[in-house]
Nucleic acid binder design. Structure first.
Lengths: 345, 345
DNA sequence: CTGAAAGCGCTTACAG
DNA sequence: CTGAAAGCGCTTACAG
C-alpha cells in the first residue's frame, strides 16, 4: 500500500524501446533484429534477441499494424441461438480460427445482437482486414452500412437475395438431391423433408433438391410432407413427429439438429432407425451428439469454406458482381440409413 | 485496370484528420466533439458530427487504445474438442462476449492448440486488458509464461493445483452432493457416477460430493460404480452402459454430455428414464439437445461466472494468493428424475 | 550495417 | 472554446 512501488511498476510490459535501450542499440535496429530483416550484424541481432527474451518482450500487435498500414485481425459476426453459439457456427468458428492462426491473424468475435444492442457500429471494423459473416447478418442495418461503405466482407452460406455480398457456400440443390436419391436407393418410397425457416435461401434450395430427386423417381411432392422448422433439435421435434404420423419411411432433414431430433423422436415413438425410418441430415457436425446418433449426412466442407472465405477477404474487389464460390459437399453414409435389407417399394 | 484510380482510392476509410479537415477544425477539436468531451462549441460539435456521419467515419479502436494507454480488448483462450468448441465453452464464450459488449470491449478468441502450433507466444496478449482462460490452459508453457510475467488472467473453472491463477468457479462438492441427495430422495438406492478425467480438479470435487451424499445416507461408495470418462457424449456412452449393466437405478453424470449419453444409452437399452433409471447432469447447457433430453442438472451460473471473470481482470493484483471466487450453482429438476412413484428402498 | 526522423490514427495536457 | 505539439509502440524509407 506504500512500499515497493518499483516492483509493481516493473510489471508494465517491456516495449521495443526498453529492449533497444538495454541492448544499447536504436529502436530501428532492434525492430530489424526482432523481425529478421536483412542488414543487421549477427552479433547485434543476437544481443537484441537475448535482451528481448530476458525482458519477456512481445510486440504490440496493434501498434505494429498501425505502423505497417496492415491488419492482422479479422472479425467474425455470429448469430445467437438462445444465448449460445449455433452448432454449425461453432464449427465454422473453430476452423476459421485455425486458418487465421496459420497466417498469424487473430479473430475478433462479435454476436450480431450484441453489436446492435450495445456497441453500435462504432469501434467495429475500422482496424480489421475484413469480416466473415453469417447469413443472418443481412438483417442488421449496420452490416449493410458496413458493406456499402466498401468494407471487405464475405458471407459463409447462402446470401439473401437483396444482399449482394461475396459469399462461399456449399452447393445446395444437387447435394440435397443426392441425399434424397440415397434414401430412394435404400428403399424409401414415402420421404418427408424437414425444411429450414421459409425465408432462408439455403432452405429453399435444399427443398428444391428434394423435389428434383423425387421427380426423377417419378414421384410427386406431397406438400404435407414438407414441414418447416428452425435449425434446432427442440424446434424440429414436432416436425419429425408430424412426418412420422404421416407414415413416412424416410426423412431428409435439411440440418443435423433436425436429423437428431428425428432420430430421437423416432426412438421415443418406438420407430426403428434405419429399418422403419431412414434419416439423412445436412451439415456433418463434428459434435459428439451427432456421432452418437450415427447420422448419414451431407457434410459441409468447413475447412475449405473457411479457407476460401479467408482468401476472398483479401481480394475484395467490390466492383461488378460480388464473387460467389460454391463448394461441393459430400454425402457421408452412416448408421441412420444403413439398412440390412432393402424393403421393396 | 487503369482509369478511375481515384474512385478506388476513396474507398480507404476516413480518418479523424479527414473529418477535421473537411469540418474545418483541428483534429483535437474533432476528437473532443466525437467523444462528447466538454468544451466544444455546440455549433462546432454539430458540424463535426455531420461530417463524420457523411464520411462514414468510425474510430480506429487500436489507435485509440494506443493513445489512451488503455485496452478495449480481452483474450479468450479456448480448448479444442475434435475441431469444434466444447459445448460448455461455447456457452461461456457467448456470455463473455455479451458482458464484454456491455462495456465496449471486444473479445479475441484463440484456441490453445493453435497458439502452440502456429502463433507462438508472440503477438498474443500485449495489447489485451487480460485473458479469460479454460482450465486446460495450465497444460501450455506459454500460458504459464504469460501468467508469470504478470499478465492479467482469470481462469473459469477449477485451476490445477500447481497453477496459481485467479479463478471463478462454481461450488463443486456441495452442489454435487445435492444432486445425489436428490437422486436418493426420488428413491434411488444404487447410484453410479460418471466422473470426468481423473486428473481434473473439478471432477475430483464432484465425486467427493457424490461420496458425501452417500455417506450421509449410510451408504458406502462402491468403486465399481465410479467410472471415469471425458466430457463428451461419445466418450461417456460406454461408462453409462457399464453402470447400467451393474444394475444402478440412478446416475450422477458430472457433465451434461455424459448425462445425455446416459439418457441416450438407456433409451437404446430399453431402460426407462426416469422410472427405471434417474439421471442428473452437471452444467445446465442451454443447448437444444439438452432440452430434448429434458435433463435434471446442476446448472452453472454462466452469466455470473463471466461477469465476475471480467471484473477480476481489472483488479488483477498479482501479489499474495490469487483471488478465488466461488459461485453456487442451482439444481434444476426436470424430466430425467421426475418419477411418478417413488419406489421404496 | 546503423541511427535519427517521420508517420500510422488517435488523445490529452498545455498554451493561447 | 480551440489549436499546435507530444506521445502511445511500432516500422520503414532516408541519410550516414
Amino acid at each position: 500500500m506504500s512500499g515497493d512501488r518499483s516492483a509493481t511498476a516493473n510489471r508494465s510490459p517491456a516495449s521495443l524501446s526498453d529492449v533497444a535501450r538495454i541492448a544499447g542499440v536504436s529502436v530501428a535496429a532492434a525492430s530489424r533484429a526482432l523481425n529478421a530483416r536483412p542488414g543487421v550484424r549477427p552479433e547485434i541481432r543476437a544481443r537484441v534477441l537475448a535482451v528481448a527474451s530476458e525482458l519477456r518482450y512481445r510486440p504490440h500487435g496493434a501498434a505494429r499494424d498501425l505502423a505497417m498500414g496492415a491488419s492482422s485481425v479479422i472479425g467474425l459476426l455470429l448469430p445467437d441461438l438462445d444465448r449460445t453459439i449455433p452448432p454449425f457456427w461453432a464449427w465454422v468458428h473453430r476452423h476459421l480460427c485455425a486458418v487465421a492462426a496459420e497466417q498469424g491473424v487473430g479473430v475478433m468475435v462479435y454476436f450480431l445482437d450484441d453489436i446492435a444492442e450495445h456497441l453500435g457500429d462504432a469501434l467495429i471494423a475500422k482496424a480489421w482486414r475484413g469480416a466473415v459473416v453469417a447469413p443472418d447478418a443481412a438483417r442488421y442495418r449496420f452490416v449493410r452500412d458496413l458493406h456499402e461503405s466498401g468494407f471487405p466482407m464475405v458471407l459463409i452460406g447462402a446470401p439473401a437475395a437483396d444482399f449482394a455480398v461475396p459469399s462461399v457456400d456449399v452447393e445446395n440443390v444437387e447435394s440435397s438431391a443426392d441425399a434424397v436419391r440415397h434414401l430412394l436407393a435404400v428403399g424409401c418410397r414415402r420421404i418427408g423433408v424437414i425444411a429450414g425457416p421459409a425465408d432462408r435461401t439455403e432452405s429453399r434450395l435444399r427443398v428444391e433438391g428434394y423435389g428434383r430427386a423425387l421427380a426423377e423417381a417419378g414421384l410427386t411432392v406431397d406438400p404435407s410432407l414438407v414441414i418447416h422448422a428452425d435449425y434446432t433439435v427442440l424446434g424440429s421435434a414436432d416436425a419429425a413427429r408430424d412426418l412420422i404420423d404421416h407414415g413416412v419411411d424416410g426423412i431428409f432433414a435439411t440440418s443435423d439438429p433436425a436429423a437428431i431430433a428425428t432420430s430421437w423422436t423416432a426412438q421415443r415413438l418406438g420407430v426403428d432407425v434405419p429399418d422403419e425410418l431412414a434419416v439423412v441430415g445436412f451439415d456433418g457436425l463434428q459434435s459428439d451428439v451427432h456421432d452418437v446418433a450415427d447420422l448419414t449426412s451431407v457434410v459441409q466442407p468447413v475447412d475449405a469454406l473457411t479457407r476460401e472465405a479467408m482468401r476472398m477477404l483479401d481480394r475484395s474487389e467490390h466492383d461488378g458482381d460480388p464473387e460467389r464460390v460454391v463448394i461441393d459437399p459430400h454425402l457421408v453414409i452412416r448408421g441412420s440409413t444403413r439398412r440390412l435389407a432393402k424393403p421393396g417399394g
